[in-house]
Design a protein around this nucleic acid. Structure first.
Lengths: 330, 330
DNA sequence: CTGAAAGCGCTTACAG
DNA sequence: CTGAAAGCGCTTACAG
């Protein structure tokens, strides 16, 4: 049976309130009684119940992190960023996978709110928008990733995906390339769209045409990158550079170039996207775009803490860093 | 201001207790009043506070998952397994990174216990053992991974790492190989030790000698696997098979074989360990050992639920699956 | 500087 | 089948 406030008070010969005051460092207390209380706390190994406190303060020092799937390599670093800010502030974080299923996401949000979380960080599914807005309040606010919401109880953290794609293509153009193809992946959703748009925008900004035949769709996996590159380079030998939707495709492209006797980057420069760990292990090492996922998580948690501290204020979206990592392949 | 039990009771014209009964589906209630209560609940969008309930029942439907670092590719799948069991049972899971730091781990455990978790799943740091045992109880039990603890409030889930290594080497032996080298990695800790021991044990079991010169240490990364394999095969051309500490090393070995003109698996068979996603994307696809991390997580959570249901019982360790995945490389 | 009382939103015996 | 009371372990005005 763990010790309670009352036990400590009894042992120290003071009232419950006095103990509460020393535990929470509030109000003024004579040093003598403070020491007596502290001693009693140590003796009894007393630990205040956050559950009881939460019931009265309506603050649990708890938040929910709702993401697609922690198994997707994108998310662990984000989670780590969130946790690294949360932990030193005494916050614990509930982790939940939505799998992009709006119904499941609603259940998760309800459960989180029932548990009395102080706030939520969420990578929302499509179509969840209005429901989400109906659930959050300035008392239990949400930080939403990649949806430009601003309002009471909601705030946005955005990724500069399109800008990242532009950085990648600009690099190729700066290296003198004019015939630049894209391995475009095939996933639905905003992510792919923004990467392709960035590619188009960069070309357009330099007065270069976009040829639809040079934008190759297909699953974003290694072998597919290899095959697509084979097809692309044999059909359009004038291509001297490739921007890939992700690093896996880019690695496939490198392999294809090797098989075709094209040197990378001399005969064909290649830029990827994501900066997966392998990007730095292959030869030639891959030039790529890094989304600072860790920073994204940190910023989201910091934002949530600000919202908790200033419930009345509204916050402009935060734009997470994106960075060109120059290695050997371009 | 969200609705409370009292509001619902008032609206439905019944007592608080009656509402509580229909919410928790306990006791018998006339269908008429049940419907009236349900209607009031829907009207007011009433949701029971888990915080209040936790205070009285001492059950929060909450657990803590303490692991080294969610950013380490080993853990996300484990976490996913835990969550997939927890969620349908209405449990929410706190995620915490210990970074293998015992002091930090103690702080995490205290915080979790303060928050009233019903139990804990932990990948413990070295040296945390006694402290951990002092903190858990049958009321707030822990499932401990890879430490053979059994007792009141503690139970173990173990990985068969050594057996996995044996499976790998047995495969090579079964394919007729007798000269089998190992790329052994260099990390400290039990993991590497067990993989090397499995290698030795498998060889010994078939009367084959272990040559220390054929066990090559080094960072477990791709290029290192490539370099080590080059060195190994040029110095000991009689080697016909390689067991790698992990898949990254094995992929490096495949690359080296290609460069040396050794066909895989005909001239040199290769088995990895871990079954990373890339293992199935390369050519030849990698034969490897899969530790069922997802299952490990599921079993740990299931075990915790059992402990919660039967606080008096003690449980024998669970041994998580390990599996040989035969692909093209051996 | 310190205390007694009320209350956070529920569940749990105990009655009827 | 249903209700009134006590209590889970704290904090928060309100007094003194």
């Amino acid at each position: 049976m763990p010790a309670k406030l009352r036990d400590v008070a009894q042992k120290a010969g003071v009232s419950i309130k006095t103990v509460s005051r020393v535990v929470n460092r509030q109000g003024e207390i004579s040093e003598a009684t403070r020491q007596r209380v502290l001693a009693a706390i140590a003796d009894l190994k007393y630990r205040p119940s956050k559950v009881a406190r939460a019931l009265v303060t309506q603050r649990s020092d708890t938040i929910g992190l709702v993401l697609g799937d922690i198994t997707n390599p994108f998310f662990p670093e984000v989670a780590r960023g969130v946790l690294d800010i949360a932990e030193p502030r005494g916050f614990n974080v509930f982790l939940c996978n939505s799998d992009g299923d709006p119904q499941r996401e609603v259940r998760i949000l309800e459960s989180l709110l029932d548990h009395g979380v102080d706030g939520i960080i969420i990578f929302p599914s499509f179509g969840i928008e209005e429901t989400l807005m109906g659930m959050v309040t300035p008392q239990q606010p949400a930080v939403v990733v990649n949806r430009p919401f601003v309002g009471p109880g909601v705030s946005a953290v955005m990724m500069q995906t399109q800008r990242g794609a532009q950085l990648a293509v600009n690099r190729l153009i700066a290296q003198g390339h004019r015939a630049i193809a894209m391995l475009a992946g095939q996933a639905l959703g905003m992510e792919r769209l923004q990467r392709v748009q960035g590619y188009r925008a960069a070309l357009a900004a330099h007065g270069l045409p976009t040829l639809d035949e040079w934008i190759v769709a297909g699953p974003p996996i290694l072998n597919r990158g290899r095959e697509s590159t084979h097809a692309l380079l044999s059909r359009y030998p004038q291509i001297t550079a490739i921007f890939a939707y992700n690093d896996l495709l880019a690695l496939g492209a490198i392999e294809a170039c090797r098989e075709l006797g094209r040197r990378v980057p001399e005969d064909c420069a290649i830029v990827g996207f994501d900066d997966i760990p392998l990007a730095n292990m292959v030869a030639p090492a891959l030039t790529t775009i890094r989304i600072n996922k860790y920073d994204l998580g940190r910023q989201a948690m910091n934002r949530l803490l600000e919202m908790l501290a200033q419930p009345e204020r509204t916050f402009a979206p935060y734009w997470a860093d994106v960075e060109l990592i120059v290695r050997a392949s371009a």
